[in-house]
């Protein structure tokens, strides 16, 4: 996808940017809400404007893969964009122009209720974590859709109860087995299958958001290979 973002054909570039906006919408919006502390409407407006600017002003064509990862570049551009917008005397209402970026906004405010950005955190670390959260959130949604479509309700329930819970609320395998009338080995197998599929979905999304094999592998190593937030 990132190759296409820098394509010379404007139509290919435009389609790639729309897909990119969909992939980055969540971390960008969360960053605006929590890091820049923009109100809901303003954040929505800024996010829309940012992606429109990426497309209409061809900002993405200026990205140099040899100097920064795309994620870092997006965050830097976003900071500049917000600063510029704040400097400007009145923000124009966006979204009604020639380009409309489909933003998956539904439910995100509920998700953000009570969430706060650590005041001392480096913006890049914060954006990176939100980007990872977005990657996993989208993948969990996709996994949920797949399991429902395949009639794997038990597997989905086990996954949600065990892997999406905070540690304090996480039941034991034995309890899950009793409550679901399964043996413990079956619980383990179902969870293993769900996790394996989730991993594959995360990696698929990661591949979409990276420019080449080297960046994909570097990001994957950071995603799975470090304790960094």
């Amino acid at each position: 996808m990132l190759e296409a973002v820098r394509a010379t054909d404007p139509e290919i570039r435009r389609r790639a940017l729309e897909r990119l906006a969909a992939a980055y919408w969540r971390p960008v919006y969360t960053y605006l809400r929590l890091h820049w502390r923009e109100p809901e409407e303003e954040a929505r407006d800024l996010a829309q404007g940012f992606f429109v600017a990426l497309i209409e002003r061809d900002l993405a064509a200026r990205w140099d893969p040899s100097r920064a990862r795309f994620r870092t570049w997006v965050r830097t551009c976003l900071d500049s964009f917000v600063a510029d917008e704040r400097r400007a005397a009145g923000r124009r209402k966006r979204g009604g122009g020639a380009v409309h970026v489909p933003l998956e906004a539904e439910g995100i405010e509920d998700e953000l209720a009570g969430a706060i950005a650590p005041s001392t955190e480096d913006p890049d670390t914060f954006f990176r974590r939100e980007w990872i959260r977005g990657l996993f959130t989208g993948s969990v949604r996709a996994l949920r859709d797949e399991l429902r479509a395949a009639g794997r309700e038990t597997r989905l329930r086990l996954f949600e109860r065990y892997d999406l819970a905070d540690e304090a609320d996480r039941p034991t395998y034995a309890r899950l087995a009793t409550e679901e009338s399964l043996d413990i080995a079956k619980v383990g197998n179902e969870l293993y299958a769900a996790r394996a599929r989730l991993r594959a979905l995360v990696l698929e999304r990661l591949r979409e958001c990276t420019s080449d094999e080297a960046e994909y592998r570097a990001e994957a190593r950071e995603l799975f290979g470090t304790d960094e937030p």
């Binding site: 953000l112 209720a113 974590r129 990872i132 969990v140 949604r141 996790r195 995360v202």
Partner: peptide
């Protein structure tokens, strides 16, 4: 869907990396 907490996110990163030999 609730926002994935930092703890749940860390758990997901861990279990999706944990090998099943």
């Amino acid at each position: 869907m609730n926002r994935l907490s930092d703890e749940a996110l860390a758990h997901l990163r861990d279990v999706t990396e944990r090998p099943e030999l």
